[in-house]
Amino acid sequence: MTSFIDYLIGGVSNGAVIALMAIALVLIWRATRVVNFAQVGQAMFTTFVALTVQTLTGSWALALVVAMVAGAILGVIVQFLVLRPMRRADTSGAIIATFGVLIALQAAVGMIWGGDAQAYPQPFDNAGVVAFGRIWPISVYDFVVIGVTILLVIALSLLFTRTSIGLAMRASAFNPEVARLSGVRVSRVLTFGWALAGVVGAVAGVLVAPSSTVSPTTFDILLVFAFTAAVIGGLDSLVGAVALGVFAGLVISLVSGLSNSGNAPVVALVLLALSLITKPDGVFGHHKARAV
């Protein structure tokens, strides 16, 4: 029973990272109705940027900030060069294009930083916290991860509910035509959404990097987990993405702990298939008539 609880506690920070990546997917889906499968490629790129900055300066916080800026820029570039001209293409085209971006970004990462897995320096104490006479399976760094995630989620929800750009984003997502007529510069708002998603993805990448290694394809599995969380959460819902992201982290930690970490992708696959069979619009999603 103790180990069961330990696995659950240990899964929270992992779940926080999955939640962030799922948020990035949801942000772009809400803005442009595209699932950005290149998101992990962007995150990997910015994580390597962060690794370079950290190696040069030794500052974890600076590396995180630089990665966030790089994430925003990369998001804008991808949206501008690939997805914006894609509006006329069919949905298959947009999906395929995001995979094209993923392939190119992973190759670019391999070209610049090499294909081998590299260790990301541990910025904070990674040993289990000692309290109440025992060692807990959660470290100071895990608290940092969870804290940053909570801050980011609060900031995002404030942005969406309290600011005019947030209102414009919601309006553009709800009905681009009406938003445009009401004076919202929809295409700029969409680009802002991509930049925002890039920032969130970059944070997720930098946060998860110390607990795994970084190589061009390390984050592939994160994409699967995040997509699973985002879809079960409804793809439209930030709350759903966060809740299901954390939930996925817990399940994965449980499964990895009780059996074998190699089973985690299979579990994600089963979860995803089950949720798509039973609730194709997700747990938190709004049921909409399908366009035909």
Partner: peptide
């Protein structure tokens, strides 16, 4: 049978899960 119910990105995501998950079954 599962895929026939799904459209665009959902299907791509499910099959992405397959691509990552099925080879992992070998480890099982």
């Amino acid at each position: 049978g599962i895929a026939a119910r799904l459209r665009g990105p959902y299907l791509a995501g499910l099959t992405l899960g397959l691509a990552v998950g099925v080879p992992a079954i070998a480890n099982r």
